[in-house]
Structure formats: C-alpha cells, structure tokens
C-alpha cells in the first residue's frame, strides 16, 4: 500500500477519537471507587465502632497513608500516559506515602513497649487483610488499565504497576474502614504486602495489555 493511500484512509477516520487520557483517568477513578465501595458495603461494611474509631489517630492514619498513595500515584500516572514525558516531575511524590509510613512506625515503636510490638504487627486477621485489599482493588485496577490504554505509556509494565498502586491504595482505604488492626506496625507489614500484590499484578497486566 502506498503511504499516500494509507494517509487518505487514516484521515477518513479523523472524527472518531478515543477518550483523552485525563478524562479516562477521572472516569476510572470515580467508577472504580464506586465499584470498590459497593463491594466493600456488600461484603464487610465499616466496623461497628466506626464512629468511635475515627476519633483515634491510628485509625485515621490508615486513610491518610492509603489515600496519599493513591493520589500521588494518580498524578504520576497522568504524566505516564503521555508518550513525550519520559520522567514525570511528579515521581518524587511517590515517596510521600512510604515516608509517612516510616515516620508512623518510628513513633509507634517509641510509644509502645517492646513486648507489644509483635502482637500488634501480627494483629487479628492478616490473612483476611491480604485477601480483601486485592479483591477490592480489582475493579479500580481494571478500569485504570482501561484508562492507560487510552494513553501511550512509554513503559507498559511500569505504567501497569502505577495503576496497581492507585488501585491498591483505593482498595486498602476501604478495607481500613473495616479492619480492627490500627497499629502502623500492622499497616506497614500487611497493607504493604497486599498493595504490593496489586502492584505486581498491575505490572504483569500492563506489560501484556498496555503495549502500543
């Protein structure tokens, strides 16, 4: 086929256009949060003493750290969807959630006697936590990958991983409303593990579905 003919063919398709990546991310975020929230309310729901719990620092911190993760990863993702952005200026923001978590763990170690460290880290239901967070994250992850497909990420696996961070943060924020283990020691261990699973899954799916 001659390139001129090919160009003529392409321009016949000019009006048809995909959703721009930024709008796609906004849609994915809203719909993903609704799906994850719906799944959360149908299965677990908030813990019975929720109103009391939100007056405690440790409980609130779980939402701060998971939402900071989701938002910072979203800002990076929006840049990664643009082919000409090789190094997003937003990347340092990804350090915010880990730094917050490390500070919280340090504080916890200072105020809690050493013989309580292990019990708090082990918590009550770590297996449940590492199962439910990825499950709640699944809907948002699929939608965020859909949004990334509207984009043109230079590195598909890395883009998928960032989608996993956003989805993992959303899933963990919902799970946190149910979970009785509020110690940063628990969060730093099991939430991190669960979000890591979602991130790995995102990278895997990304390398498969985000090529262009």
């Amino acid at each position: 086929m001659k390139t001129d003919d090919f160009i003529a063919a392409l321009s016949a398709d000019a009006p048809q256009q995909q959703t721009p990546p930024r709008r796609a991310f906004a849609i994915a975020l809203v719909v993903g949060a609704i799906i994850a929230g719906g799944a959360f309310l149908l299965t677990l729901g908030p813990r019975p003493d929720f109103m009391h719990a939100i007056q405690t620092l440790r409980f609130d911190f779980k939402f701060v750290v998971t939402l900071v993760l989701a938002i910072s990863a979203l800002l990076v993702a929006r840049d990664m969807a643009r082919p000409e952005v090789h190094r997003s200026g937003m990347r340092p923001l990804l350090l915010a959630a880990p730094v917050l978590l490390i500070l919280a763990v340090a504080l916890e170690l200072m105020v809690v006697p050493p013989d309580l460290w292990m019990p708090r880290l082990i918590g009550h239901n770590m297996r449940f936590c590492t199962t439910m967070i990825p499950l709640f994250a699944l809907g948002p992850l699929v939608l965020l990958l859909w949004a990334f497909r509207r984009g043109a990420p230079d590195n598909p696996a890395r883009a998928g991983a960032v989608a996993g961070l956003i989805a993992g943060g959303i899933g963990a924020a919902f799970y946190a409303a149910h979970c009785f283990d509020d110690s940063p020691l628990f969060v730093a261990t099991w939430y991190t593990l669960a979000i890591g699973v979602v991130t790995g899954l995102g990278a895997l799916l990304g390398s498969r579905f985000l090529r262009w």
């Binding site: 390139t3 090919f6 160009i7 256009q17 995909q18 721009p20 082919p83 043109a152």
Partner: peptide, 16 residues
C-alpha cells in the same frame, strides 16, 4: 513510516 502514522492516528488523543 506507515506504522508510525498508524500509531499517531490511534494515539492522537494523548497529545495535549
């Protein structure tokens, strides 16, 4: 060339 043109076409919504 044609492959690049196709990619430009399919990803044109990513240009801000």
């Amino acid at each position: 060339v044609q492959e690049i043109l196709l990619a430009i076409h399919l990803k044109r919504q990513t240009w801000m």
